[in-house]
Write a protein that binds this DNA or RNA. Structure first.
Length: 910
DNA sequence: GACTCCCGCCAAAGC
DNA sequence: GCTTTGGCGGGAGTC
């Protein structure tokens, strides 16, 4: 009986309300098919039976096919239609209809009947969500009718309301809708999405999801997750530490649940789960989250000890529900992680990249001066940050009207001007299909396409101009949401591009996002900065409104150094995925590491770069010596905010902190010093105190720059390979000195703040003179030179640290053993600007990633290989890292040990 | 057989 | 007491 009801797709209550239909419902679809099978066996030559005349006569005179008739009949059998017909006292007619359907069902070939039924995929939540979203504009105006009646939607979409709840709940978690009253919701579209994502990322970082993911991954890798109860307990403990903040729903100003009922309801789990799920993507690097890990984390937060299969399965089910909706929103995309142990489902974030601790609006106040933009941004940022924690008096925080106006104006302008991804992107078949499927969304595209093209050409020019300039006077804010190379949807890019601007492709009109060139004691040296996660948390306190942007590198000739030793272990389609473990003492060694794909000029250039790198390091050491003179003078007073309240408080004080600008180098070092103390690393602390000569430099002090802590490794080269958007000629023009001397006198830029470090997901990367603590995923993005560049598919102009220098530096100072290499920036390298951007392959223990095409429509994409480098024990890729009692996922490696696994991930779509 | 995820039961919350 | 909301898990469909 239940089965029959289910097959008919009727609501449970309605099923029992219409007694006359019971006989009809009792006929399960499968039975029909089965009977048909029998029928076809008996009558193999039987042609599809025609629709009986009688049922047709009983139906409205529509020139439909029997299949259409049947669909209509089934539709008529839906609860809503039945109820309506009941109200109209059309029971007789309905009975006839149903009888006709029954007759059809009996007479139609089973195959045909099955075809007439909406397939499972056609009834999927994702498709349903697509239909739902198609009803409303992505960016509704206030004039639009933005109210959603669940009844109406359910009826029009011909689904039971229960399904609509699933969709609405997820949308609600993203603040795309809000509940107004019973059965009534307000549609907000994607207006709030950037802010929501930013907030979610922030909370995710506070909840240390990155560490949790790493912890689970590590445990999984050790095959001990399910066996070691003690560890499980420990993990639950670590999860439990964040329990308070994790069980709350992240709200935005003006988006609070208006119905007290919703707020009071203890179980908003689908909403909360959805938010947490999104958080996992936002804090992950790469932004791929497997379902099992997500489920474990979500379970773990609550009661990991009670992890049982049923609960796990239920969690997985819900995650699928959420993922379907998020996929429809084109925020994520299904992929498959193929590991040694098999293939497991995962999802890749395809939505806009979110940079935390940046101003959420004011990002591109093109008409304002930089200082004005900054001053305007700060309150907005604070406002947004404050509202991350609704439990702490969120009602008291309201966005200033001027900011709202500013936001809208900016967003509108952006939408008009730059709506497309800033780099060539692969338009999946599904995307294209979606375009055609939703003309309302398509309508937004043509108007902006021209602007996109123009904007891109302008961006290149702009980049050239910027590159030729030694420094910029402006310290623009950083876009909080950076469009990813892969546009999530036909409409999403409008917002993504509009709201953000990847650094590397800054359009000329958006001066506010121009990279910042800091006054640099040695313009020829760039730095990579390394922070550890807790430090990253700390630096968020500073949340400098002045976000440092990487200077588009003049020398964009890529170094495609590949460690020949690693080459055998790593599958990569891009030679620059791997970074050479250069022995700085021998240039020939460097040469040996050149990729086979390199051209001779590239080799020459690299060779010269190696010299330059060494020189730069030497210069940097001098810098370091001078900088270190101030080291340790400030007292450590920083602490990583561990909970939302603390963060809230800090956010409240951010204005005050801002007034205390400029942050001095002393403060920066003090923070570092403090960080060392926090990490219980007396050795590092001592080293800082004693100003040991280490080839790292701290942040370049400027009167407008905050570098709370960290280690900056000098980088002389922008290691852009062929992906760089500049030809050699252009490079020569931009940087003639470098060209002639095979050097890279890049103006030193340290486009790094704590927030930016977090933005690129460097959760646990801690380089000290004596130890390195790295998380598996963190290393991939370790050298940070600007998130927007890193994330941008058009990262050619981003400043990429030289892997050679990085490895040399690390080796030279004894941080890593010879032969071990640290990728300078695999992330950028693995985010091609080409249409392959969608296909990412991360090297990860022979783990392959396969992107799945959405159920409907289908798309075919090629697998691609990317490398992701994890830290491991030097013993080899499969060597287990030394474990540590720490549960934060960062200290699992004993001091002095570098843990660098070479894992291989393959990302492909089915 | 594992993976996906639709479906609807049923209970809590709301009205 | 009825309706709305949504957690939850069975099990069908798919791979």
């Amino acid at each position: 009986m239940q089965q029959a009801g289910g097959e008919m797709g009727t609501g449970d209550k309605e099923n029992h309300s219409s007694e006359p239909y019971k006989n009809v419902w009792k006929t399960p679809l499968k039975q029909a098919a089965t009977s048909h099978s029998v029928l076809t066996e008996i009558q193999p030559d039987c042609q599809p039976l025609t629709t009986p005349t009688k049922p047709k006569e009983g139906l409205p005179a529509d020139p439909w096919t029997p299949t259409s008739n049947l669909k209509m009949l089934i539709s008529a059998a839906s609860p809503e239609i039945r109820s309506r017909e009941q109200r109209r006292e059309l029971s007789n007619t309905t009975t006839e209809v149903l009888q006709a359907k029954h007759c059809l069902q009996e007479h139609l070939l089973g195959e045909e009947y099955e075809k007439s039924q909406p397939s499972r995929k056609e009834k999927s939540l994702g498709l349903l969500c697509h239909k739902f979203l198609a009803r409303y504009p992505d960016y509704p105006s206030s004039a639009d009718n933005n109210y959603i009646s669940l009844d109406e939607v359910a009826e029009e979409l011909k689904v039971e309301r229960r399904r609509i709840y699933d969709i609405v709940n997820v949308l609600e978690s993203l603040h795309m809708v809000s509940r107004l009253a019973k059965n009534r919701y307000a549609w907000h579209g994607r207006h709030n999405l950037p802010k929501t994502l930013q907030a979610l990322k922030k909370v995710g970082e506070n909840n240390k999801y990155t560490q949790q993911i790493q912890l689970i991954k590590r445990r999984e890798h050790e095959h001990e997750f399910d066996l070691d109860s003690e560890r499980k307990e420990g993990m639950a403990k670590s999860f439990g530490s964040n329990k308070d903040s994790e069980m709350s729903f992240v709200e935005l100003p003006g988006m609070e649940f208006r119905a007290a009922s919703v707020n009071s309801r203890k179980d908003k789990s689908l909403r909360v789960m959805s938010q947490k799920f999104v958080m996992l993507f936002l804090v992950s690097t790469p932004q791929i989250v497997s379902l099992d890990i997500a489920a474990k984390i979500l379970i773990g937060e609550e009661q990991l000890e009670d992890l049982d299969k049923s609960k796990f399965k239920t969690k997985i089910r819900r995650l699928y529900d959420i993922a379907n909706v998020l996929s429809s929103l084109q925020l994520i995309k299904k992929v498959h992680l193929t590991e040694e142990r098999g293939r497991k489902p995962a999802f890749k974030w395809t939505g806009p990249e979110v940079l935390p601790n940046t101003q959420d609006t004011k990002l591109e106040t093109t008409s304002t001066t930089c200082s004005q933009a900054i001053s305007e941004c700060i309150p907005s940022k604070e406002q947004c940050s404050k509202n991350l924690f609704p439990s702490r008096g969120k009602q008291n925080f309201t966005r200033h009207p001027s900011l709202i106006k500013l936001v809208k104006t900016i967003e509108n302008d952006r939408r008009k001007v730059q709506s497309a991804p800033t780099s060539p992107v692969k338009r999946s078949a599904s995307t294209d299909q979606n375009l055609s499927a939703f003309p309302s969304k398509m309508a937004q595209v043509p108007a902006i396409a021209k602007h996109q093209l123009e904007g891109q050409s302008k961006k290149e020019k702009e980049n050239k101009m910027k590159l030729s300039r030694p420094a910029l006077e402006c310290h623009p804010s950083l876009p909080e949401v950076v469009p990813r190379p892969e546009p999530p949807s036909s409409t999403a890019p409008c917002q993504q591009a509009a709201l953000t601007q990847p650094l590397g492709v800054c359009p000329p009109g958006h001066t506010s996002v121009s990279p910042v060139i800091l006054p640099h004691p040695h313009p020829g040296v760039s730095y990579a900065i390394y922070l550890q996660p807790s430090q990253a948390h700390t630096v968020t306190r500073y949340s400098p409104s002045v976000m440092l942007q990487p200077l588009p590198c003049a020398n964009v000739t890529g170094i495609k150094s590949v460690n020949s030793k690693v080459l055998n272990q790593i599958t990569t389609e891009e030679g620059d995925n791997q970074i050479a473990t250069d022995d700085p003492k021998s240039l020939t060694a460097k040469e040996r590491l050149l990729t086979k794909s390199e051209t001779s000029p590239q080799r020459y250039l690299k060779r010269s770069q190696a010299v330059q790198e060494i020189n730069s390091i030497k210069r940097c050491r001098r810098d370091e010596e001078s900088l270190d003179t101030n080291l340790g003078e400030s007292s450590p007073n920083e602490s990583s905010p561990s909970n939302s309240s603390q963060m809230n408080h800090e956010m409240d004080n951010s204005q005050e902190e801002k007034q205390n600008k400029p942050e001095t180098l002393d403060q920066n070092k003090a923070t570092c010093y403090d960080q060392c103390k926090r990490e219980d690393n007396p050795e590092e602390e001592a080293k800082i105190k004693t100003k040991q000569d280490i080839p790292v430099a701290f942040a370049i002090p400027t009167h407008e720059t905050f570098f709370p802590s960290g280690y900056l490794i000098p980088l002389t080269q922008c290691s852009h390979g062929s992906k760089a958007g500049f030809a050699d000629k252009e490079k020569a023009e931009v940087c003639p000195v470098q060209h002639t001397a095979y050097s890279s006198p890049i103006t030193g830029v340290i486009p790094v703040t704590g927030s930016e470090l977090k933005a690129v997901n460097i959760p646990a990367f801690h380089i000290t003179p004596l130890n390195i603590m790295l998380s598996p995923t963190s290393i991939a993005a370790a050298p940070v030179l600007g998130n927007s560049c890193l994330s941008s598919s058009n990262a050619s102009s981003a400043q990429i640290p030289s892997s050679s220098v990085l490895n040399f530096t690390l080796q030279h100072i004894g941080l890593i053993p010879a032969g071990v290499q640290v990728p300078a920036n695999p992330f950028v390298q693995h985010v091609p600007a080409s249409s392959q951007a969608e296909n990412i392959t991360h090297s990860s223990e022979n783990t392959s990633l396969q992107e799945e095409k959405p159920p409907v429509p289908k798309e075919a994409q090629e697998p691609q290989t990317v490398t992701e480098n994890f830290f491991r024990t030097p013993g080899g890729p499969n060597t287990e890292p030394p474990r540590s009692a720490k549960s934060d996922g960062t200290a699992g490696i004993s001091p002095g040990t570098l843990y660098i696994p070479q894992r291989k991930l393959e990302v492909s779509e089915d």
